[in-house]
Design a protein around this nucleic acid. Structure first.
Lengths: 211, 211
DNA sequence: ATAAAATTACCTGAAATCAGGTAGCTATTT
DNA sequence: AAATAGCTACCTGATTTCAGGTAATTTTAT
């Protein structure tokens, strides 16, 4: 056997999942698990990032949004195959992940056969989805028409505080901004998301994993 | 070595987690993994249930609530050690699980060392928690002092609509009530839950599984 | 049967949100 | 150098929420 070895990285904040993946990947001969990380930022501290062929990427990480992380990696190294993993199967998240260049999407509830199939497909350079996600992709959903707006840093800050139940006054106090400025940001957020009040905004945000 | 072998069962709907646990448990000599299941009901179809010593039990299962399942198992076989596992660390859930007889609670984000420690502790018949959960248990939480108020039927109806982002006017229209009546109910809800605005109310409701 | 709880509804007034507009300043990109 | 995007801040006015009170009617429980 002189076949090329694929260099693999696993990024997941659940050590137990990393172990499971190792177990799953160990019988496959032409791969080597180079590095396992439990957060997103340390990936950029990894020296041999450019040498990686495949990254197993958890969508929900403690530090960085997996969706944004995927885009960052792909911008730097478009050739790296990214296989997204998560526990929940929210259509919008799957779609965003694919839009950001992910080569596949696996639910952690997928069977071992599905995992193996997806790994094979991904190594072969194809898009790979577990059954449940595949079904999700096939159905055309209404929520897709409503694109998820891109938020600025300030807007994210304010949105986070709104989520905690803070009032405009409290937000302006904590961020050292004018009351009127915060009002403007709130209005812009409602407008961007096409919703009519704060609760609808927060519902959309949590349903679509915006933050 | 003629030490007694512990009979272990793993109940989790994520095959990858089962693999991870197998990997983790495999080096430990005095245990044998008897059965791995991906749902709760099939546990009762398992013939040698009474012979089990330890069950690793996922809290969120597709068919049965892990909290209820724990109680059922403990009623039938109080001697079986149950180690609960979940991804989220919600205090109320951890507390309920312990109340229902669980011998430990592990987050899937716990380190491998924490897993090993907890397994050792549990096998020794002690309560076992990962660090994060232990911290959760130690802190006397404000939410505990704040007892969950009992809601009337009407209040539940209105709360459900508020959760959907409906305004007072919309609620009064859908429930055929006066605008002023709905206002009164809203005020009563805010007062009952000791919160200052709608978002805080809805946060409390979803954090404590009120509805 | 009577008490307690729930539901409905109103009044008043303060506070906050929502909606439209404008506008200066800064940083970044082309 | 000019254009674009982001952040800041103000004005006005309508609408909604929040907070206090009272009170009649209906339902539920003892």
């Amino acid at each position: 056997m002189n076949s090329i070895k694929y260099n693999i990285a696993i990024v997941d904040d659940h050590p137990i999942v990393i172990e499971g993946l190792k177990m799953l990947l160990s019988p496959i001969e032409n791969i080597s698990i180079d590095v396992c990380l439990n957060n997103g930022t340390s990936l950029f501290g990894y020296n041999d990032l450019s040498k990686l062929d495949v990254i197993f990427l958890d969508v929900f990480l403690p530090d960085i949004n997996g969706i944004d992380l995927c885009l960052k990696i792909k911008k730097l190294y478009p050739k790296i195959v990214i296989l997204a993993m998560s526990s929940q199967s929210e259509r919008s998240i799957v779609m965003q992940m694919i839009k950001n260049g992910a080569n596949g999407y696996l639910l952690k509830s997928a069977s071992l056969e599905e995992f193996r199939n997806c790994i094979d497909l991904a190594l072969a350079g194809k898009l790979a989805f577990c059954n449940e996600v595949q079904a999700l992709i096939n159905q055309t959903d209404i929520n897709d028409l409503k694109a998820i707006p891109r938020l600025t840093v300030r807007e994210k800050e304010i949105l986070t505080l709104l989520k905690q139940g803070k009032s405009t006054q409290e937000i302006s106090d904590t961020l050292f901004l004018s009351f009127l400025t915060v009002q403007t940001h709130r209005r812009n957020l409602l407008h961007k998301f096409q919703v009519k009040n704060l609760v609808e905004l927060l519902n959309f945000v949590s349903d679509n994993g915006v933050l």
